[in-house]
């Protein structure tokens, strides 16, 4: 159980990294870090392939990032037809990871620029699903 709660439309459920979803529901964006080599992963991994270990810990992403790119999606894949237009973006965070996420619909696309500072925040949707969004 876990990933069935992620996104506008989920595709899978069980995963060792399901605590990612629990944290998101509690308002925190967390990812994993290898306790042996210190590598911070995104997406979170339950295992470090460099150290051949599953000795990883959850660390918080504070959400302060810089937008690297974005797109306004007018035609979405199946299951997203009623959600368009929406904005996808990739930002780089202080922890050294990049995250792909939604850019808040509250932001006018004309006000979005590559290089702008954003804040990634957890969001609970009306149907109970969880995501994260980039806000200004």
């Amino acid at each position: 159980m876990g990933f069935e709660k992620f996104g506008m439309k989920s595709f899978t459920s069980d995963a060792k990294v399901a605590p990612f979803i629990d944290h998101l529901e509690q308002g925190r964006i967390m990812t994993t870090k290898c306790r042996e080599c210190g590598k911070v992963f995104f997406p979170p991994k339950a295992d470090c392939p460099r150290c051949l270990t599953s000795n990883v810990e959850w660390v918080e992403i504070n959400g302060n990032g810089t937008l690297l790119t974005y797109t306004v999606v007018n035609y979405g894949p199946s299951g997203f037809e009623n959600d368009t237009p929406y904005i996808l973006g990739i930002a780089e965070f202080e922890e050294g990871v990049k995250i792909l996420g939604r850019v808040s619909k509250e932001i006018n696309p004309r006000d979005i620029n590559v290089g702008m500072k954003i804040k990634l925040v957890p969001v609970k949707l009306a149907n109970g699903q969880v995501i994260y969004e980039m806000k200004i």
């Binding site: 996104g7 506008m8 894949p77 299951g79 959600d83 792909l100």
Partner: peptide, 13 residues
């Protein structure tokens, strides 16, 4: 399908 598709990603996006 865990971290991308649930947000509405696609080839053109």
């Amino acid at each position: 399908i865990m971290f991308g598709s649930p947000l509405g990603t696609s080839m053109p996006a």
